[in-house]
Amino acid sequence: MKRALTVALLVVVAIPLLYAVAQLPQHGSPMTPPYTHISPRYLEKGPEEAGAENIVTDVILNYRGFDTNGEVTVIFTSLAAVCAVLLGSRKGDERPAGEPSSSAVPVSDVVSFVVRLLSPLIAIFAVYVMLFGHISPGGGFQSGAILAALVIVTTVIVGRKQAEALVPVRIRRLLQVAAPLTFFVVGVSGLFLFGDYLAYPKTEGQMWLATAWLIVIGIGIGVGGAAVLASIFWTMGDDS
């Protein structure tokens, strides 16, 4: 009896679902709305409407700004949770401070020299990717990852204690929330200036403001991403 009821219920649920799936446009078909209206509109009007020549930036930060805002909040919250869990598991066995790196192999002079030689160039590239995300490929996430890689390499060379001392914990906490915070600031200022959360200026004369906001969000995401990834590395690499 119970089993028959279950099957009947499943069938009743399955039929509308299958009907709905059958009503969906065919996957990848050129006749679906994304291909008929949305993509051409973005490609043609993106640069003048959204304030960035790089259409990917237009889409993720302006047209789909809400999505990116929520996404950034979720990602950075989860990264902060990872940091918290790692930090909590570390509390028990506190090592004496000031102990030098205890890895089995001391840092090689050659590697150290090459990293010192290349790291300014990497930093310049990261900042370039961050600031020119509205023109060339790149943007906040990318530059954040490059900066984090730079921080990790430098940490390996100079030792964790010294590298970590450059960014005090209090400032680090602020930097970690930089990405959602800049989104929030830009969104609220849009609320006051243009009457809607995350509203961008639309008129011809104000496009520079839209571009400036895209750059500001890019900087926020880049700095925040680099800070979070570097903190995870620092928190994990306690005794290495």
Partner: peptide, 18 residues
């Protein structure tokens, strides 16, 4: 030319030191 020999050096050195 900078990075690849450095990587090779680091690998070989780490292997030798361990």
């Amino acid at each position: 030319l900078l990075s690849s020999p450095t990587a090779g050096h680091a690998l070989a050195r780490a292997a030798f030191r361990t």
